[in-house]
Computed example of a mutant assay.
Amino acid sequence: MAQKYRIYINQKVILLTETKPQNAEDYESIDAEVFDLKIVYTWVLSHKSKLFYVLCKDAKLFIKAVAKSVTLIEAAGGLVKSENDTYLFIYRNNKWDLPKGKIEKGEKVKEAAVREVEEECGIKVNKLEEKICKTYHVYILKGDIVLKKTHWFMMRSKGQYKLKPQKEEGITDVRWFNKEHITPIVKNTFPSIIDVLVKEKLIINTPVPL
């Protein structure tokens, strides 16, 4: 099965793919031979199109090469489900988001995911389940291009907790949502979060670039 990776730049997506995407006419093609994220970043932001693709022989090797070409920050977080079948979301920087944070030096990915969720929301994770996916997005930090790779896990929490947003991390709200009531989140979140929700089937029939 052909591998595909999505790199998000704000609300735009660069699809790294081994096969031409569906509805290729909706995409702008970027030549794999001359791909340089430091240059592509500015070009994509100034371009009117929101969808781009890079046709490559080995998407996994390609994303690794891209990661080596810029500053890579690895983070981990989770989608937490309560015993009442509600899901935990945070509100940060005027967007709904999922709790996540940078993996500390010497820390295992799974440990970081649980720690960040507990710190940012004031809850206890009772069970760490399967890995959902990895997401990638690009931004500027201190003048440098940064690629953030986030590892997402499914988690379970039991009991009633007084949710406590980690305000020093810019989080102003933490809430549990029923699956049927996440429309406000879908309308005001990041494309990478949509990816996580689609993977866990909280969203169905949502147009995610393939």
Rank of each mutant, 00 (worst) to 15 (best):
L202T: 07
E33G: 02
I30Q: 05
H47N: 12
D173P: 09
L16W: 00
D36W: 07
I9Y: 02
K108G: 09
C121I: 02
T19M: 06
M155T: 14
K142T: 01
E28K: 14
L79N: 01
T135L: 06
G78L: 04
K108M: 11
T19F: 01
V109P: 10
N23G: 05
N126K: 09
F35R: 07
N93E: 14
N188L: 08
L51V: 03
L147A: 09
T17Y: 01
F177E: 08
I90E: 08
T71S: 10
H47Q: 03
K38S: 13
Y139N: 06
K110M: 11
D97G: 06
A24I: 06
K64N: 13
E129S: 11
G77F: 07
S192C: 09
C121E: 01
C121K: 01
K201H: 10
L37M: 09
K201A: 06
K179D: 10
A24F: 12
E118F: 05
W43H: 10
Y27T: 05
Q22F: 06
K142G: 02
V125H: 02
K148G: 00
A65R: 15
W43G: 03
L45W: 05
E180S: 15
K81I: 08
Q22K: 13
Q22H: 06
K12C: 03
S157R: 08
Y41S: 07
E168G: 00
F35Y: 13
D58F: 04
T42A: 14
Y27V: 04
S69Q: 12
P165Q: 04
V186T: 03
F35W: 05
M154D: 13
T172D: 11
T71I: 13
V44S: 04
H47G: 00
K164I: 09
L72T: 08
E116W: 10
N10K: 15
K95V: 05
H137T: 11
A76H: 05
K167M: 11
K110Q: 14
L163I: 03
L72S: 05
A113W: 07
N188I: 02
K127F: 09
S49Q: 10
E111I: 10
K124Y: 10
E107Y: 08
R156G: 08
I123C: 00
S192T: 15
I171G: 06
S49R: 12
I203C: 09
K38V: 12
G77N: 03
I7P: 00
D31G: 09
I171H: 07
K158N: 15
L128M: 14
K148P: 00
E33K: 15
K167N: 06
N178R: 15
R115Q: 04
K12R: 13
C133M: 15
T42H: 14
I73E: 13
A67N: 12
D26C: 01
F52V: 01
V80M: 01
I194W: 09
G77I: 03
E180I: 13
T135R: 02
T183R: 13
K68W: 04
Y41G: 06
D173H: 15
A2K: 05
E200V: 13
P99L: 07
E120Q: 14
L128A: 10
V196G: 05
K20C: 03
V44D: 02
T135A: 03
K201L: 07
W96K: 01
I140V: 13
P209T: 05
V174H: 12
G77H: 05
H47V: 00
I171L: 06
